[in-house]
Design a protein around this nucleic acid. Sequence first.
DNA 1: CTAGGGTTAG
Length: 747
Amino acid sequence: MKQGLRKVSEQRSNVFYQNLKISRLGKSGRLEEAIKVFTLMDQKNTVTYNSMISAYAKNGRINDARHLFDQMTNRNLVSWNSMLAGYLHNDKVEEAHDLFDKMPKRDPFSWTLMISCYMRTGKLDRARALFDLLPDKTDTACWNAMIAGYAKKCRFAEAKSLLNEMPGKNLVSWNSILTGYTQNGEMVLGSQFFEEMPERDLVSWNLMVAGFVDVGALDSAWEYFQRIPNPNVVSWVTMLCGFARIGRLVEARRLFDEMPCRNIVSWNAMIAAYVQSLQIDEAASLFMQMPERDSVSWTTIINGYVRVGKLDKARKYLDEMPYKNIGAQTAMICGYVQNNRMEEASKIFHRMGTRDIVCWNTMIAGYTQCGRMNEAANLFYKMVEKDIVSWNTMIVGYAQAGQMDKALKIFKEMSERNVVSWNSLITGFVQNGLYFDALKSFVLMGQEGKKPDQLTFSCGLSACANLAALQVGKQLHHLAFKVGYSNNLFVSNALITMYAKCGRILDAKAVFKGIDLADVVTWNSLIAGYALNGCGKEAVKLFEEMVSERVSPDEVTFIGVLTACSHVGLVEQGLELFKCMVHVHNIEPLAEHYACVIDLLGRAGRVDEAFEMVRGMKVKAHAGIWSALLWACQLHQKPELGEIASEKLLELQPDRSSNHVLLSNMHAEVGRWDDVEKIRGFMKESGAQKQPGCSWIEIQNEVHAFVSNDPMLRTTDGICSTSKTLTAQIKNTGQKFDIQAQLLESL
DNA sequence: CTAGGGTTAG
C-alpha cells in the first residue's frame, strides 16, 4: 500500500518533470527532442498534451498541433487557449476565429489571444469590434494588446486614447506605445514620449537603444546606452549588434569583452557579427570557446561556412550537430544549391524529419537554377503549403528554361500575385523575345493595382528597345518620372539603351548626363549605344573617359567599344583596345571579343591576320566568327580561305540558308559557277530555307508587328520598304499595341 | 509544468 502510493507520487513527479522538459525544449526550438520525450512517456496528462501542442505550434508545425488537439480526450481551457495561441503565432486568423467560436468557455486569455491575432494580421477593426464585446474589462493584458496593436501600425491617436481610458495602466502599456515609435523609426516622437513617461524600466531603455540602432543612429544609441542605470544582457547585446551591423566589429568585440553578464545569446550575437562580415575564423574560434552551444550557435557557424564557400567544413559541423534543426539543414542545402551540388542537397532534404516552406523553396530554386524543371515541378506539386515565393520561383524557372507557356500557366493559377510575380513574368517575356507580351503584362499589372517598381520599368524599357518602339518607350519614361523612378540607376541604364536602340543617341546621351552616380552598366549602355548608331569615335572617347574616371571596364564594355571600332573601320585603335583589355585590364577574351576583332580585320582586308587570330584563340570559334570571316573572304575575294570558313560554318549551322547564300555569292563573284550550282543543289536537298524574318515598326504611337515571310510583300532585303506594303502587312498580322491611354489610366 | 500584453541573438 505504502509502496503503491510512493509509486504514484514518483510517477506524478516524473510526469511533471517531463512536461517541463517538453515545454522548455519547445520554447528553445528543439522540437525533435521534445517529440522524443513526448513519445517515450508512458504516462501523459492534459498538461503533457498542452505542452506538446505549444511546442509544435512554436516551431511552425501548426497542423501537427491541431492533430494532437483533436486527439485529446480531456481538453481543459488551457488546451483551447494553447491551440488558439498556436494559430496566433502562425498567423492563421480564420482558423483562430473558428476555434474561438467553438470554445466551450472563454477567459481573459482567450480574448486577448484572439485580439492579438487580429492585430498581428492587420485586422484592426475586427480586433476593436471584439474588444468592444469583451464582457470583463478589468484585465490589463487585453487593453495592452489593443494599445500595442494600434501603436505597431502607427495608429498613435487610437493607442493613446485607449491608454487614457484604461484603468490601472502599467509599464507594459507605456512601453507598448513606445514600441510603436521605436519599431517604426519614429525616433523623434519616440524620444519625446520616452521623456514624458511616468516611469521607465529596462525594456523602455532597451527599446530606445534598439530604435536608434535600427535607423542607423549609432551615436544616439550609444548615448542612451550609457545613460541606462543598470544595463542588462539585452542592452549590451542590442548595442553590440548595432556596431556589428554597420561593420564596426572592433567596437562590437570590445562590448562583448566588457559586458559583465554574458549569456549564450551574447556569444551567438558576437559569432553572428563575425559571420556577417565573413570573418569565419574569428567566428569559429568563439564557437569553440563558448561554454555551451544551442541550435542558434550551430546554425550560425554552419551558415558562416556556407557563406564563405567552405562547404565541407559546414558539412562537418552539421554532422557533429547533436539535434539538427531545420535552419541548419536548410543552410547546408542552400550551400549545395549555390554550388550546383544538387544530389547532396537532395540527400539532406530527404533525410530531414521536418521541413518548412523555406526549405522546400530552396530545393525548388536549386533545381530551377540548373534548368532541371521536371524535378522542380515534382517538388512544387508535392508541396502541401506553398507560399508566394514557391510560385514565383517556378515562374522564373520556366522563363529561364524558355517555357513561357508553362510560366504563364503557373502565373495564372496563383491566387494572389505580388510585384515579384509580375516582374518574373515580364522579365521572362523579355528574355524570350516576346516583347509584345512583356508590354501587355506591364499594362495588365497596373490594371490589377500593382505598382511597377524599378525592375518592371527597366524590363518594359528593354522590351521597347528591342521593338525599337520609341513612342512607347517615351511613355514609359514619362511614367517612371511620374512615379519617381526616373532617377533610379536601373531605370536610367535601361533608358539609355532604349533611346540608343531607337536611334535617339542624343536622348540617350542626355539621360547619361543626368546620372549622378554611374555604374559600369551605365557606361556600357552608352558605349554600346554609340556603337549601334555608328558613332565609333564617340564610343572610343567615352571609353577613355570611363577609364579616366576610374570605372573598371568589364567584358561587356569591350564588346561595345570593339564593335564600335569595327563598324567604322578604326582598325588600329580596335587592335590596341583588344591588347589593352587582355594586358591592362586582365580580361580573358570571350568568343564575342574575338568576333569583333576578326570582323575588324576582315573588313579591312586583313583576312590572313584574321585567320591567324582564329587559330590562336583559347575559346572555340562560334558561328558568328566564321560568318564574319566568310563575309570578309567574299568582300576581298579570297575563295580558298572562304571555303574553309564556309565548311566550318555549315558544320555549325547546316540549316541556315544565309550561309549557303553567302558561299554561293562568293563563288559567283569570282566566276566559279559550278560551285554555285553545287551549293544551290545542296540547299534544295537539305531543305534549308530562308528563315522568316520578323520585325517591328512603330507608326503614330502604335507598335506593329510584321513578318517578312510573305514573298509578295518582301523586298530584296526582307524589309518592307513602302508604306503601302506596310499597311497591307499590318492587316495581315493584325497585331497592334497602344500603351499610352491604358497606362496613364491605370496608375 | 501548459495559454495572453512591452525588449535582445539566429
